[in-house]
Simulated scan of single mutants.
Amino acid sequence: MHGEFFLILRKSSNYFAPYRFPHLTRTTMIDKSKVTLKDIAKELGISVSTASRALKAHPDIAKETVRAVKELAEKYQYVPNSLAISFRKKKTFNIGLVVPEIVHHFFSNIISGAIATANQSGYNVMVSQSNDVLQDEKAAVNAMLHSGVDGLLISISNETVLGEHIQELMHAGKPVVQMDKVTDHLKTPQVIVDDFDGAYQAVQHLIQNGYRKIAHFRGRPIVKNANQRYFGYLQALKDAGITPEKDWVKHCVQINEAEGYRFAKELLEGPNPPDAFFCITDLVALGVLRYLKEQKIEVPGEVGLMGFSNWKLAEISSPALSTVDQHGYEIGVRATQMLLDSLAGASISSDAITEIKTNLVIRESSGRKKVQQQTQEALVGNN
């Protein structure tokens, strides 16, 4: 009987030794519906545990072995019995993920990073959204608990403060990792961005381009990352010797385009109009931009504008919107890996904080103030 041969590296004590083995020929008859991992392991002359790790492409298993196992699994249409695995290991291999919005560029990036990382370790991700409403978040977390998820990733709603519903899940022995929007009332690991520095850099950029009367449309005071962006705004003004105008700070509740439009109209039609806007999100900034375009106010030149989040819409707006990139995909990856490490038995401090740096994305909307350009041109002409 002629068979095919593969070279794998079988681990033996402290080294990997070469091993050769045949597997069944194409003429061998087998009932595909009854194939088990044990059958695949037996055919290849390896242990069941090695075959299992090879299916997951474990780094300790040689690439040749991984290829051989996967080829045979595909040939026999082998599908792991997830229910049996879950029962044996007392795990569902599902993790929950709750975000304020699914159809949102930043949060969709978080979701993509989380799913990619979880899948690499054999986990599935159950995604739900809170709509930034506390009651919806409670319902989502409760559903996750009763579905038996092994752990939870969450970016809390704008209405969440104490998070008792999340605490219930933790009391059930489920690890939780908070991302982006977090509350310090919950003692869980956090993966956040440096919102303070991102805001500071954004406002400093506007100042360097000649804008001095900078308004800020901020988020709710009970939301930690909104506060950090507000504090970064204030610090940038202070360091530039600019006294902030209380009336130029507006509190967004819905954090949407309509609020940006309404506040821009209110300030620019008032007695002391600002010459630039720094907004809590790109969506709010796009509302400001809509008003400016309707009024035929030159952007940049007369008014400068900065958003926060780096939405795709910011890139294609006219003029293109300057913003702050939060690196959502990386947040998803880091938070999920932290949760997986916890599920694997790693000791992770409940006050562990992973902070990801932001970076400015400079586009047209924050270009130099026109008045300053004219002044500089006059100075050059006089010389």
Results as ranks from 00 to 15, higher is better:
residue 30 I to R: 15
residue 332 G to F: 09
residue 136 D to C: 04
residue 3 G to N: 11
residue 183 T to K: 05
residue 171 H to I: 00
residue 300 P to N: 02
residue 78 Y to M: 10
residue 161 V to A: 10
residue 336 T to N: 02
residue 193 V to C: 13
residue 371 V to Q: 14
residue 211 Y to W: 06
residue 33 S to N: 15
residue 272 N to F: 10
residue 256 N to L: 06
residue 4 E to Y: 10
residue 266 E to R: 08
residue 8 I to H: 10
residue 13 S to K: 13
residue 85 I to C: 02
residue 46 I to F: 04
residue 290 R to V: 01
residue 245 E to V: 03
residue 103 V to D: 14
residue 47 S to R: 08
residue 55 L to I: 01
residue 233 Y to W: 10
residue 51 A to F: 02
residue 292 L to F: 06
residue 71 E to V: 02
residue 289 L to V: 02
residue 299 V to W: 14
residue 243 T to C: 02
residue 128 S to G: 13
residue 119 N to R: 11
residue 381 G to W: 07
residue 1 M to G: 11
residue 251 H to D: 13
residue 227 N to F: 05
residue 371 V to K: 13
residue 235 Q to C: 00
residue 67 R to H: 05
residue 85 I to A: 13
residue 148 G to A: 01
residue 92 T to C: 05
residue 349 S to N: 13
residue 106 F to M: 06
residue 289 L to N: 04
residue 204 Q to E: 14
residue 175 P to N: 03
residue 244 P to S: 04
residue 155 S to R: 03
residue 290 R to P: 07
residue 204 Q to C: 02
residue 10 R to V: 04
residue 112 S to C: 02
residue 157 S to W: 03
residue 361 V to I: 13
residue 145 L to R: 15
residue 280 I to R: 02
residue 157 S to D: 11
residue 76 Y to E: 03
residue 192 I to P: 00
residue 223 V to S: 03
residue 118 A to C: 09
residue 183 T to Y: 11
residue 111 I to F: 05
residue 372 Q to K: 10
residue 359 N to K: 12
residue 28 T to W: 08
residue 290 R to W: 10
residue 235 Q to R: 10
residue 305 L to I: 00
residue 366 S to L: 01
residue 266 E to I: 01
residue 293 K to P: 01
